[in-house]
Design a protein around this nucleic acid. Structure first.
Lengths: 206, 206
DNA sequence: ACAGCATTGTTGGCGGCGCCTACATTTGCG
DNA sequence: CGCAAATGTAGGCGCCGCCAACAATGCTGT
């Protein structure tokens, strides 16, 4: 795992790490997954990677910058997952929506802490530019799906905000409840099916 | 605001505060509201209240205990708000649901950080008993509403989990998006109306 | 009335944190 | 090759949460 790109003298610790930035991100995500966002400390990351406590600052100006970068990779992976979910599918809105919802919820369950981090980004005055782009880009996928559904007459007419807003809300709400463990256990079973059916009813034409 | 119950010698600081626990909670909620949960420090609270840095530990065994207590008051206030929203209303599910949703979202907007805290409670192995009770008690209100709607034939049949689950998801999702500022601004307008209409369609009988 | 005890506060200390500055080593480019 | 930029190190500052030892207060039973 630890990069051994230009090792030269094998395993002895080199002064320069090689790719500390990537290593920090990887280790940070692991810690995030295993112990939650509260237990994430730059000093501990540095220790784990065998590097001095101030080394991370060369790659992230402060802790928030690392979290932002982490979130950005999260958004990118999420987008990939959602895109992949649409491959080789029929054209019907119901089918495509079903697949996308399952992909989203699957991602949420497998990356609960990361998703929480992504959503907790204080639309800071000026987050990194790439992050802002990544943040909004994934929702375009769902928006396009809805527009296509409208074109096919499977989804009621109306502006994207008015039709898609509630859909976003359910999706986000269910995924969040599931990821944070706030779902009554008896709902974990059919919960997702019911939510999907519910949405399809909610946005079907009259 | 600062309690002056048994002052005796007017304003000079007494060794005992009088009601430090309540003062801590009050001040903590204020800080929570103004600067978010991350900036909440026991030492700072103590400083603000003119008390030594270790005094809070007499009332809360650790920081989490204070957060739990804060969350508990939040759940109780939420329940009050939801109950109040149902007073003097007609019997129809649509009307009562509308009122409850608006009350919930109103609470979420006015107490965004507090609500986040309430939801972020790691169903810890053993949180205080009162908290666990408070946590689940508010959702009963919505559940009863749905059951009543089913009895009146305004809501489709089915187990509470299967019918109510999606409703919870939308409600939670919309409130969370709104409270954390993730709603596209153009949705703040009619967003809530659309969500309510969406839910009514989604759980109407066939 | 008051002795004794539980309650509530105070002081000081420990280790950990994020961030800063000054300094050291490497790398890569002119 | 030599020097500047990039990267890592060492140490320190002021926070933080938590703990232990001690002090003031309030309460209660006799």
């Amino acid at each position: 795992m630890t990069v051994t790109l230009r090792p030269m003298h094998s395993r002895t610790r080199r002064y320069h790490h090689g790719d500390l930035r990537a290593a920090l991100l990887a280790r940070a995500e692991q810690t995030l997954r295993e112990r939650g966002p509260a237990d994430l400390s730059l000093r501990e990351l540095a220790r784990d990677l065998g590097v001095s406590h101030a080394a991370p600052s060369r790659h992230f100006k402060d802790k928030q910058a690392l979290l932002d970068a982490l979130a950005q990779t999260g958004f990118e992976r999420l987008r990939d997952v959602l895109e992949a979910s649409q491959e080789g599918l029929g054209e019907s809105f119901a089918e495509r929506f079903d697949a996308m919802v399952r992909a989203y919820v699957g991602f949420a369950l497998e990356n609960a802490a990361l998703l929480e981090l992504m959503y907790s980004l204080k639309h800071a005055p000026e987050a990194s530019e790439g992050l802002l782009v990544a943040t909004q880009r994934w929702s375009e996928l769902l928006e396009r799906l809805i527009e296509e559904g409208q074109r096919r007459g499977e989804v009621r007419k109306g502006s994207l905000e008015r039709v898609g807003g509630p859909v976003f809300a359910v999706l986000h709400g269910y995924a969040d409840l599931a990821a944070t463990g706030h779902l009554p256990p008896e709902m974990a079973e059919t919960g997702l099916d019911d939510v999907i059916a519910f949405v399809l009813r909610g946005c079907a034409p009259d």
